[in-house]
Design a protein around this nucleic acid. Structure first.
Lengths: 213, 213, 213, 213
DNA sequence: GATGAATGAGTGTTCATTCAT
DNA sequence: GATGAATGAACACTCATTCAT
């Protein structure tokens, strides 16, 4: 699956968040495309080599440009990796937002099912990259850049819960955090050790439990 | 908290699993101590510097030995990092085993509470190291070495569930995996975003849900 | 102070010397101006950043043109730097020539005073650039291009001395070299460590001594 | 001529000055030798390639060690270049000091002759290196490290003049600066354009003039 | 056994120069 | 003619690993 185009739908729906600032604002189509190609190239290298062996030269090579060009768009390796990470997380948040909107009238249990489904989809879309990217993020201490996107996801959920008729909890934000965490960490075990059906039902149960608090 | 002595109690209780093979079997006390010191030194460096900046020379220095000596006991950086990782995981498994034994007659809900407590304790004991070590593990692709220890934890839980009167599930192994995952990934969010009390009750709820399947 | 227009007055007075050959003979006014702008831009960058950090891209930027355009007029970084250097030295030689002409009838001591004054003026006009340019010249081994201009200055002085009634020396060329060197190297110390008055009188004394041999 | 051993005689005579701090104090003979070899290797590369093309890898190669070893003794390229520079300047200052001591009772003119001789000797000993090193120094902005050594030379001369019976000037420090400058900048022209005899007599004349003020 | 100096392949990054538009 | 995106060789510096002492 291709890395999503930069500048996702969610922007129209939520307050702006601080963006990664690539060296040069990709205004022309050419640039836009190259930035996207670069993210995609990065993804491929990351998946095939793992964080430690992800090397700028190879990213350039698989993307079909020169190292110099990479640095024209991203001032550092870190910024490139982080941009990819942000892009993926944003995609996931958008995906979640879309689905929540669509099921805004479902009861808590239905909601849990939706959330579980979204989580499993996101997981399948990114299985390997995100793993590698998380290493990268810690290793480079670039969490700071990711925090906003994560926070955005939490806000989304928090807001949703607060306005949801079925939700009776007193700490919607904590709940949002917990749900986010369930979404990001359970899919792997569930799909690696069980069938798809099972995975969904079990994850749903966990999310439901979380929503009840 | 100090890294535990190598060769934990759980060995006496469960089948042996393939060990990391340090270059030299530490038979003499001197060696045993040095290996332990090295793991402790590694832990400190890892915590203070993060994976990317963890350097053999510094590990040697804080441990008070020469680089050469490090390589006498661990054939590579990876093996050293992995040994520490294994050691910590083993400690956690042991801890879990001890507690399960002690509460072998509790009902499922009580069990969930115990499991949650153990998870939170383990988390507090290792907060920072494990984070860094997980990066390291991915970055170096050394999951292979860790799998056995993780499997051991799963086996422990699986066996326990199978013989537990309250457990009605049909897939004890999947459940064990899920519980293990809950134990390792939920404590961080829960303690960072809520108070200790809350963290325990919420984690208990999740584990309980997992055990019901 | 602005870099002087290319093609100084001295040309009318002395035999032509081999010139730097910019890729394109600047015939149209537009080009002439651009070349001058480029030299001025180079000067500014050189002064503010120093040789090592003087980068073609920045020169282009501060001049308000594209890198490509720079290369239209100067085939290489070296040629640009050298052109500036030559331009400054030519300016100095012209300045000296003008002043010598004007005081062609002064005695040796008066002459020394004139020379000292010219040297101090030149120094004040170029303090920082010339320093940086000299680094550049060595670092790039482009002395060859500068030699002619320097030689021109020496010739000027030599000729002047030969026809001067007060000069009794036997090696006018060596004297010319020495004087040139005094002019280029003494002002800095003299002005940095003493007052203007003092600087002039001391430099005059040295030049006078040189002229006596 | 070989680069001088580190730790010159002048230390015994003058107050300590801030030294370059190589990463590791060369205590053992092996280290001492290597540091010296490195300086010598640097000198050779610098002379044969010029500043811009002086590359760590080549310095290592001609010295017969690995790049890593270079960095064991000098934390950066700059520090290496500066160490060489300081070493040479110190040598020159020492040389001057020795000669002044020896001729402490000579009259001003004799003194000028001694100073001129020392300057010419130093020049012959270092002709090419120092040129390259001066570029380097500017380009890297490491004048700060050199200032002390230069200051030391000035102090030496200043003190000498103040206690010299023949000296009648009122600004011994300015004079010292001027003399130092004459020593460093005149030899090149004088020897390139005239014979040795002549060079010495002319330089003597200039220095004498300087001493009279 | 222990040491730590030596190694050198490997990395991120820069920048003079070119050339398609 | 002008532009500035693209190129890629080159470089300083790091660090896991070895091995002579």
């Amino acid at each position: 699956m291709r890395v999503q185009e930069v500048g996702p739908a969610i922007f129209r729906r939520m307050a702006a968040i601080p963006r990664l600032t690539p060296r040069k604002e990709p205004r022309q189509d050419r640039s836009r495309a190259l930035v996207a190609d670069l993210l995609e190239g990065t993804r491929r290298v990351l998946v095939s080599k793992g964080y430690d062996d992800t090397v700028m030269a190879e990213i350039a090579e698989v993307t079909g440009v020169s190292v110099g060009s990479v640095y024209q768009y991203f001032p550092s390796k870190e910024s490139l990796l982080t941009a990819l990470h942000v892009s993926l997380l944003e995609g996931d948040v958008t995906h979640l937002a879309d689905n929540l909107m669509e099921h805004r009238d479902t009861d808590l249990e239905g909601l849990a099912a939706v959330v579980a489904a979204v989580a499993l989809e996101s997981f399948h879309a990114h299985r390997d990259v995100l793993h590698a990217l998380e290493d990268a993020a810690h290793a480079m201490g670039s969490e700071r850049k990711l925090a906003p996107v994560r926070a955005q996801g939490v806000q989304l959920l928090t807001g949703f819960l607060e306005s949801h008729v079925g939700y009776r909890g007193e700490e919607p934000e904590l709940t949002a955090h917990v749900v986010q965490r369930l979404m990001s960490s359970m899919p792997r075990v569930l799909t690696e050790c069980g069938e798809a059906e099972l995975a969904h039902s079990r994850l749903t149960a966990l999310v439901h439990t979380a929503l009840l608090d």
